[in-house]
C-alpha cells in the first residue's frame, strides 16, 4: 500500500509517496536522495543509520517512515550550515578519526546527541554514549579523541 506522507527533515518539508511499511532509512536514502544516512546492517546493530528525531538519536532502520511524520528529523546533511562545518564535524577531521568513513555520519549524530545532553562527558560517558555505533577501521581511540575535541570546541 502506498501512502503520501510529509516529513520534516533538516528544517525542510518533504512530501513523499512511500510504501506504508517503508523504513525511514530507506526513504531518506532511496526516495529523498539523502544517502549520508548509511545502511550498515538493517537490524539495529551498527548505528550507521543514526539520525536525530526531535533532537534525540534514533535508528532510522528500526523506524517506519509513517511514524516519523510530525517529527523533526536531522540527518548528517543538515549539520553543516552554509558550507561551514559543525564543530563536531571539524573535530572528526582534525582528530584523524575518519578512515573508510562509512560509520562516520552515524558517529557524528551520536556525538551530537551525547554533547547536546552532556556537554562535558567523561571518557566513560563517551564510551557509553557512543557504543551504539560500530566502526571496523579505527579501533575507536581517535573517535574518542574527536568527541573530546568536539566538546572543547563547543564550550
Amino acid at each position: 500500500m502506498k501512502r503520501d506522507i510529509t516529513l520534516k527533515i533538516n528544517g525542510q518539508s518533504y512530501e513523499v509517496r512511500i510504501e506504508e511499511d517503508a523504513l525511514l532509512m530507506d526513504v531518506l536514502r532511496k526516495n529523498l536522495y539523502l544517502p549520508g544516512t548509511k545502511k550498515g546492517c538493517g537490524e539495529g546493530e551498527c548505528g550507521a543509520c543514526t539520525v536525530l528525531v526531535d533532537g534525540v538519536s534514533e535508528l532510522s532502520c528500526l523506524m517506519y517512515a509513517v511514524m516519523a511524520e510530525g517529527k523533526e528529523i536531522t540527518t548528517i546533511e543538515g549539520l553543516s550550515k552554509g558550507g561551514k562545518l559543525d564543530p563536531i564535524q571539524e573535530a572528526f577531521v582534525e582528530a584523524s578519526a575518519v578512515q573508510c568513513g562509512y560509520c562516520i555520519p552515524g558517529m557524528i549524530m551520536s556525538t551530537k546527541n551525547l554533547l547536546d545532553k552532556n556537554p562535558h562527558p567523561t571518557e566513560a560517558e563517551i564510551l557509553d554514549g557512543m557504543s551504539g555505533n560500530i566502526c571496523r577501521c579505527t579501533g575507536y581511540k581517535k573517535i574518542v579523541d574527536a568527541v573530546k575535541l568536539a566538546a572543547e570546541k563547543r564550550a
Binding site: 544517502p35 577531521v93 568513513g101
Partner: peptide, 23 residues
C-alpha cells in the same frame, strides 16, 4: 605531518560517494 585526510570533509558531511548509496 598529520595533515587531515583529503577525503575527510566529504566523509564527515555525508557527501562522500559510496556505491551502496548510488542510484
Amino acid at each position: 605531518k598529520g595533515v587531515p585526510r583529503v577525503d575527510a570533509v566529504a566523509k564527515v558531511t555525508g557527501t562522500a560517494q559510496y556505491v551502496y548509496d548510488m542510484q
